[in-house]
């Protein structure tokens, strides 16, 4: 079982519609942008509801895991500054990265999204290092090889790429936009 590392867990088990959504809305207010909420519910309609709710409120529905009667929904709180300016000079678009992957299977791709985002959907062979853990896990990486950094929209990966470059990584490339526009191969739970 993969560790999905939610920042906050909401127990909405045993509650009927619309209470799981009402509680989710309240719980979401307590999260910081970018954090992950796990909602545990037994209302079977909650799966479709969570998806629709996230869509209209602008938060990100990551996915649902079913454990017996319990549905575990994962949502990530959106941040307001999604369209911020990217500073790392070295970028590549999704299509170019896909071509490179086809040409060379041993390419290094780091996915800096939260563990729960990675768990549901990621590029095969991408290594999961959430942005918040990058500093302490930087030693796991080889500074000499070409390293591609990916997130959802290219912002977190921009920060990560800057961090890696500052730590002496010679060849770091930010993937833009990243998973939000990725149409190539992916893998994850429920797939």
């Amino acid at each position: 079982m993969e560790n999905l590392k939610a920042n906050v867990i909401l127990d909405a088990k045993g509650l009927a519609c619309p209470m799981p959504i009402v509680k989710t809305k309240k719980a979401m207010n307590s999260l910081e942008a970018g954090q992950v909420l796990e909602v545990q519910a037994t209302d079977k309609g909650s799966k479709a509801d969570m998806k629709a709710w996230a869509e209209s409120t602008g938060h990100h529905y990551l996915g649902t895991i079913e454990e017996g009667e319990v549905l575990k929904h994962y949502l990530r709180k959106s941040s307001k500054d999604e369209a911020s300016e990217k500073k790392h000079p070295n970028v590549i678009n999704n299509e170019e990265l896909e071509k490179k992957m086809e040409a060379n299977e041993n390419i290094v791709i780091i996915d800096v999204r939260e563990a729960a985002e990675y768990a549901f959907n990621h590029i095969p062979n991408a290594l999961s290092i959430p942005l918040g853990e990058l500093k302490e896990r930087i030693n796991e990486l080889n500074k000499q090889v070409e390293t591609f950094v990916v997130c959802r929209t290219g912002n977190r990966s921009d920060l990560a790429a800057q961090k890696l470059a500052a730590h002496g990584f010679a060849n770091v490339i930010n993937v833009v936009p990243g998973m939000s526009g990725w149409i190539g191969k992916t893998t994850g739970i429920n797939k």
């Binding site: 009402v22 989710t24 809305k25 709710w53 409120t57």
Partner: peptide
């Protein structure tokens, strides 16, 4: 009504 309010409407 509550579902709509929870969805920021």
């Amino acid at each position: 009504a509550t579902a709509a309010a929870a969805t920021d409407q």
